[in-house]
Design a protein around this nucleic acid. Structure first.
Lengths: 214, 214
DNA sequence: ACCTTCGGATACATCGGTGTATCCGATACA
DNA sequence: TGTATCGGATACACCGATGTATCCGAAGGT
């Protein structure tokens, strides 16, 4: 049994070890991809023996899951923060800038996240977790969009703010794919900005337009 | 050496075996994901021994690569075909229907393709191959869009037809991600239709609008 | 039909990873 | 500071996958 459910001693050494293992795992997973990584490798990268691993986790899957949860939580907070900066009115380009900063900057995270997606695509239980996480993000976006609705009209094709949020997430996912392949962050940010502008404005120039980057 | 470069006998038994292995590999990869699959498993699924495998391929990677090439080629042809149906004028909704039919119907293919993406994201050489493939598709789309340009104006934010093609591919990738998670093909097609409509029309109703599905 | 070449099967040696049982130094609490 | 518990290290037995060398039946040419 790895997860300390019983309320024994706190043992700060343990939490340190666990954190070290998670950090090392992040690096190793990003570099080689889940599925091409052995427990041994993670331990070696973290500077611990396999005994330490089994004392903290039951399996590679469990560690991978824990790792994803941790980082995803972090990102979600950052995104919420970036969306909450403005007042009641929404400055679309500025918000897009801040959000892409958080979402597209860390290539390692994108790699791990995609690995997790692939994992989830084959395991309904995992998929549900990921879907919930995405739904939370979408709700945050829809709320933000809704609050600024009077200010900038959304194109009718997308339906309500929720539909628009879906579109935003899809755009983000699409750009992520391209970024994973060419590794060009600046370009990706440019594309994302364009896409979001095209999606969130009615095309008649109500809100600011992104300049073309390419 | 596996690849028959020397011009020896043709041996139709060999091509059959190779095809069987590729088919079995497709099923196994789709089910378990590259990285969680052993050579042994593929052989077992195909009904051959490992000797047959090593006689046809050098490694799992090589087989995976060959598999991807084969299927990607197939899909590319189908998409080109679907785009070529119309006359000089482009019927956007109809074309979208036909293309999504090809692109979103086969979940197994999406799974394998995503595995390949993950693979490519960590290997520049592989990434180049995939990028070229995507560029070909994009060009086909841009051509099609360009031919119909007079008919339906593109929104200015996306720039030229090439920019629009980029956007189309991004939308497709974004919807794919969602589809991988919830497995709802009908919904995915609806979203894709909406997204493309939002992206490819100027929002003033020049071309037909997709009805909301959700 | 022959026989040469080919292709897949079988057997074997090896290796790396896994999980577990046990041990000993570290750590928290009195 | 003593001590009971904890946490990570070490050692071991095991398994499954790998790659190769060899063998024999199958296919194709003449």
């Amino acid at each position: 049994m790895a997860a300390r459910t019983t309320g024994g001693r706190v043992t700060r050494r343990r939490v340190r070890t666990r954190a070290d293992l998670l950090d090392a795992a992040f690096a190793v997973f990003a570099a080689k991809g889940f599925g091409h990584v052995s427990i041994e490798e993670v331990c070696q990268a973290a500077g611990y023996s396999r005994g330490a691993f089994y004392s903290n986790f039951d399996s590679l899957d469990e560690l991978f899951f824990a790792l994803y949860r941790e980082r995803a939580e972090l990102i979600a907070e950052q995104v919420s923060g970036a969306l909450a900066v403005d007042g009641p009115d929404l400055d679309v380009p500025a918000a897009v800038d801040r959000v892409t900063e958080v979402l597209l900057l860390d290539r390692d995270w994108l790699l791990v996240k995609t690995d997790f997606l692939v994992h989830a695509a084959r395991d309904p239980a995992v998929a549900r977790t990921l879907l919930e996480h995405r739904a939370r993000l979408r709700r945050a976006i829809a709320d933000r969009l809704g609050r600024a609705r009077g200010h900038c009209a959304l194109p009718a094709v997308l339906g309500d703010a929720d539909g628009a949020a879906h579109a935003v997430v899809a755009a983000y996912d699409g750009v992520t794919t391209q970024l994973l392949l060419d590794g060009d962050v600046a370009r990706a940010r440019g594309w994302l900005k364009q896409l979001l502008t095209a999606l969130l404005t009615d095309g008649s120039g109500t809100t600011a337009r992104a300049e073309r980057i390419v």
